[in-house]
Structure formats: C-alpha cells, structure tokens
C-alpha cells in the first residue's frame, strides 16, 4: 500500500535526522505521553495483585491474613503507591481525551467537550463510592 518513501534516491545531499531513542525526553508533553502509556504496566500489576488476593481469599482466613501481611511489606506498599499514582494519571488523561474521540449530538448540535468530560468524572466518583461502600459496608 505505502511505498518506501522515495525521498533521497536522487538527492544524497538532503540531510535526514534519525529520531533519537530518547525522543520522549525532549519535551515535557512527550514525557507525559510516555508516562501515560507506561500506566499499562501498573494496570497489569493491579491485575496480578488482585489475582493473588482472590487466590488467598479462596485458601482461607489464615492465607488471607498472610496476603494482608505481605501487602504491608514496604516494597509492596511503595509499588502500590506508585501504581495508584499511575492509574489515577491514566484515569484523568482518559477522561480528558474522551470528548475528542466521541461526538455527541443533541438536537443536531454538537455537545460541548465539557459536557462529555463532566459526566465521565461524575461516573468515576460514583463508581468509586459504590465500590468503597460495597467493600467496606455491611
């Protein structure tokens, strides 16, 4: 479909700069982008952590206590704090970018971006409250 860029075939003197491997250090917004993308690692970590928790719960009260004790280990705690920072960053960027990806129309008029982002944040708050209430309540 796309041919090789035919650029320099007859023009060996054109100067071409190769993109540095560390291009994402060049600008703060590029760095923010790569940090946003690296949140994927911490999402994966969360799943592993949760699976370990489920496994421990299934094994019995003693085993679950061992899991809780393990999660008090400073290393695990620090990993979880970093992970929390990254997933919150993911959530904020995700909701912020959502209006760009979707167009909602009301009576033929385009709904402003804030009207899409706003309910996203509201849903985030409601979902968080609901999970907390179910886990802690009762």
């Amino acid at each position: 479909m796309s041919q090789t860029p035919i650029y320099t075939e007859y023009h060996p003197r054109w100067y071409r700069r190769r993109t540095s491997t560390y291009w994402w250090l060049r600008r703060p917004s590029y760095l923010a982008f790569i940090l946003r993308e690296l949140s994927s690692l911490f999402v994966a970590w969360f799943v592993i952590f949760t699976l370990l928790q489920i496994h421990a719960l299934k094994q019995g009260a003693e085993s679950y206590q061992r899991f809780v004790d393990w999660s008090k280990n400073p290393v695990v705690l620090i990993v979880n704090i970093i992970a929390l920072f990254f997933v919150v960053f993911h959530a904020i960027t995700w909701f912020k970018l959502a209006p760009q990806a979707m167009v909602v129309r009301l009576h033929g008029k385009r709904v402003p971006a804030a009207w899409i982002a706003g309910p996203n944040y509201a849903a985030w708050a409601v979902a968080s409250a609901l999970v907390a209430w179910i886990v802690l309540g009762g």
Binding site: M1, Y30, F33, Q100, A101
Partner: peptide, 30 residues
Amino acid sequence: DHTGIWGCTFVGECTKACPKSVDPAAAIQR
C-alpha cells in the same frame, strides 16, 4: 492499515501544534 489510523497512539501533539484548530487527533480517534 497499520500505517493509517492504527499507527496513531494518540499522543495528541498534532492537535496542540495546529494553527487552525483542525484537531487531527480527534479525526483519527473518531
């Protein structure tokens, strides 16, 4: 194609750079 929309990782810099507020990033995500 993978050289089309699927190559884009939504860095969003195109939209910030655009002097005409075209918002190419939005076009690609849509």
